[in-house]
Design a binder for these strands. Sequence first.
DNA 1: GCCAACGTTGGC
DNA 2: GCCAACGTTGGC
Length: 137
Amino acid sequence: MNYWLFKSEPDTWSWDQQVAKGAEGEEWGGVRNYQARNFMRAMKVGDLGFFYHSNIGKEVVGIVEVCRESEPDSTTEDPRWDCVMIRAVEPVKVPVTLEDCKTTPALKDMVLVNNSRLSVQPVTADEWKTIRKMAGL
DNA sequence: GCCAACGTTGGC
DNA sequence: GCCAACGTTGGC
């Protein structure tokens, strides 16, 4: 089991929209970054991730689950790009902000803190536990 | 809205 | 294969 973090601008694709998709889930398409793509290729069905709102909020707002492994991204003809499908699992009780992550010593090595531009990131088991707790879950 | 950081592109 | 130019992202 691996853990991940999915970043989205709520103006483009928000947690509420993700929740509205229900168990069916939604293709995490449109990613045009090799590192992010490679992480998605490494994902397995059942892997869990945080859903993070960039720009507006700058906080973790929910938990998602990978429900289909990587396949060609339907938003492009370019065969280089693949993506997974994710579904909403549960919302957080307390949003965990970027500021919170920066000021929590256990999270100082998080990719989110050090490379905020990467849109799909790995999260360690320890970071996962820490953030879950901070989120009131 | 600005700008720093980063990734990608393309000319050589 | 290097590197300058450019575009995009995202925090502030």
